[in-house]
C-alpha cells in the first residue's frame, strides 16, 4: 500500500488541537507541561469554549502558556493568579476562567491567594503542576520538594530541621467549604493522561455550573531540574512523589 493512501483524513486517529499554536515550546523534552497544555486545549475545544476561555498564567515555567494555548490570557505576578482569576470571573461570570500554576507559585508565594480564592468558592479552575522544584529559576527547592531531595538550594537534600516538611496543599484545599472538586492526577502514561483530561473537563464544567472552586493537581516531572532522563524521571516520580502525593480524587462534590 502506498504511503500517501495511508496518510489521509479518513485514517486519522489523532490530531493536535487547533487551540495549540504551532509556536515552538520552550519546555524541556520530557517535561509534563506540554502534555497538560494539550489537554487544556483539547478540553476547551471539545466544550466549545474557545470564545469564552480566559487563562491566567503564573510566574514560573508556564509563564508563557499564553504563547501556546490560543485563548485570551492574563499574566499574573508571582502567586497572584487566583486573585486575578477571582476578578475576571466575578466581572464576567459567563467566561471559563482558569489559572495554570506551579508549586512555587501556588504553594509558596501565592498560598494566601490560593486558599482565599478556594475559600470564597470562586467559580474558577486551578490547574496545579507539582514537580517538587522551581524549574524556571534553575532547580531550587520548592515547598513541595521531598525530604532528602537534592535541589540547588538544598544541595545535600531537604532536611526537616533546616527546611521544614514538604507541603501537601491539595488536602488542605479539599478541607475548605469553597472547593467542590480537588483531584490529583499525573500524565506519565496514557491511562493517566486520559484520567487527567477527564479531571480537567470535570473541573471546567464545575466552573461553568458555578458550584465552587475546582483544583486539578498534576504530579509532574522536571527531568532537567531533577537531573534525570525523562524515562528515569517518570520512574523516580512513581517511586517517590506518589508516596507523598498519592493520585486520586480528594473531594468530589456534585452540586
Amino acid at each position: 500500500m502506498e504511503l500517501n493512501k495511508i496518510i489521509c483524513p479518513e485514517n486519522r486517529v489523532y490530531k493536535k488541537p487547533e487551540l495549540l499554536n504551532d509556536t515552538h515550546m520552550h519546555y524541556c523534552p520530557g517535561c509534563s507541561h506540554g502534555v497538560v497544555h494539550k489537554l487544556v486545549a483539547q478540553v476547551i475545544e471539545e466544550m466549545g469554549m474557545q470564545e469564552k476561555a480566559i487563562g491566567v498564567s503564573p510566574v514560573g515555567c508556564a509563564v508563557f502558556a499564553y504563547n501556546y494555548i490560543d485563548v485570551d490570557w492574563l499574566q499574573a505576578a508571582h502567586g497572584r493568579a487566583p486573585a486575578m482569576a477571582t476578578a475576571a470571573k466575578r466581572l464576567m461570570p459567563d467566561k471559563l476562567v482558569f489559572t495554570y500554576q506551579g508549586d512555587g507559585d501556588l504553594a509558596a508565594i501565592g498560598t494566601a491567594e490560593t486558599i482565599h480564592a478556594c475559600n470564597r468558592a470562586e467559580n474558577i479552575t486551578i490547574i496545579f503542576i507539582n514537580n517538587a522544584i522551581y524549574g524556571m529559576t534553575g532547580g531550587q527547592m520548592a515547598p513541595t520538594t521531598l525530604l532528602g531531595q537534592k535541589t540547588a538550594t538544598c544541595p545535600y537534600g531537604r532536611r526537616v530541621d533546616l527546611n521544614g516538611y514538604p507541603l501537601a496543599i491539595a488536602p488542605l484545599l479539599a478541607q475548605l467549604d469553597g472547593t467542590c472538586y480537588v483531584t490529583r492526577q499525573s500524565v506519565h502514561n496514557v491511562a493517566n493522561v486520559r484520567k487527567t483530561k477527564a479531571a480537567i473537563r470535570k473541573a471546567f464544567e464545575n466552573s461553568m455550573k458555578g458550584i465552587g472552586t475546582s483544583v486539578v493537581e498534576v504530579v509532574s516531572t522536571c527531568n532537567t531540574g531533577w537531573k534525570l532522563s525523562p524515562e528515569k524521571a517518570n520512574e523516580w516520580m512513581v517511586e517517590n512523589m506518589f508516596a507523598k502525593y498519592p493520585l486520586g480524587d480528594l473531594k468530589n462534590r456534585e452540586e
Binding site: 491566567v56 492574563l74 499574573a76 505576578a77 497572584r80 486573585a83 486575578m84 482569576a85 477571582t86 476578578a87 475576571a88 466581572l91 464576567m92 494566601a112 491567594e113 482565599h116
Partner: peptide
C-alpha cells in the same frame, strides 16, 4: 496584595 491584583485583572479586562 490580592486587592491590587484583582484590580489589575479587572483593568486588563
Amino acid at each position: 496584595v490580592a486587592a491590587v491584583n484583582m484590580v489589575y485583572a479587572g483593568a486588563a479586562c
